[in-house]
C-alpha cells in the first residue's frame, strides 16, 4: 500500500478509480501529501463525543415534500440534446458498451 502515490492515510490511486478520475503520477503524489495533511487536521473530529447525537443532513429539515403526481412538460428534445458532445437521430452517442 505504501507506494509513493499512496499517503499514510489515503490511497489516492484507489480513490481515483472510485471517482472515475484519471490522475498523472505527479498529481497522485501531490494529492497524497496534501490530503494526508488535510485528513490529519480532520481527525480532530474523532476526539469529540458524538454518542447519541443525531446526524444533520440538511440544516433546516423538512419531511414529506410532495407535489401532485401530474405529467408536465419537460425540456424539449432539441433543447436537451443541444449541449451533447455527440448526437445522432435524436440520441446521445457514446462509445460501444455491449460486446458483439
Amino acid at each position: 500500500m505504501s507506494t509513493n502515490n499512496s499517503g499514510k492515510k489515503i490511497d489516492v490511486a484507489y480513490v481515483a478509480q472510485l471517482a472515475r478520475l484519471e490522475l498523472t503520477g505527479e498529481e497522485r503524489v501531490r494529492l497524497a501529501g496534501q490530503l494526508d495533511r488535510i485528513l490529519e487536521y480532520v481527525d480532530q473530529l474523532r476526539q469529540l463525543n458524538v454518542d447519541g447525537i443525531e446526524p444533520t443532513a440538511h440544516a433546516i429539515p423538512q419531511v414529506n415534500v410532495f407535489r401532485s403526481d401530474e405529467a408536465r412538460p419537460g425540456l424539449p428534445l432539441k433543447e436537451a440534446l443541444k449541449n451533447a458532445p455527440q448526437r445522432m437521430n435524436d440520441l446521445f452517442v457514446v462509445p460501444k458498451v455491449v460486446e458483439d
Binding site: 473530529l45 474523532r46 469529540l48 458524538v50 447525537i53 443525531e54 444533520t56
Partner: peptide
C-alpha cells in the same frame, strides 16, 4: 462512519 457520518453529527452540535 469515521468521517462523513461523524461530521454530520458534529454539524448537529454546531447548529
Amino acid at each position: 462512519d469515521a468521517y462523513y457520518l461523524r461530521a454530520q453529527k458534529v454539524r448537529t452540535l454546531i447548529r
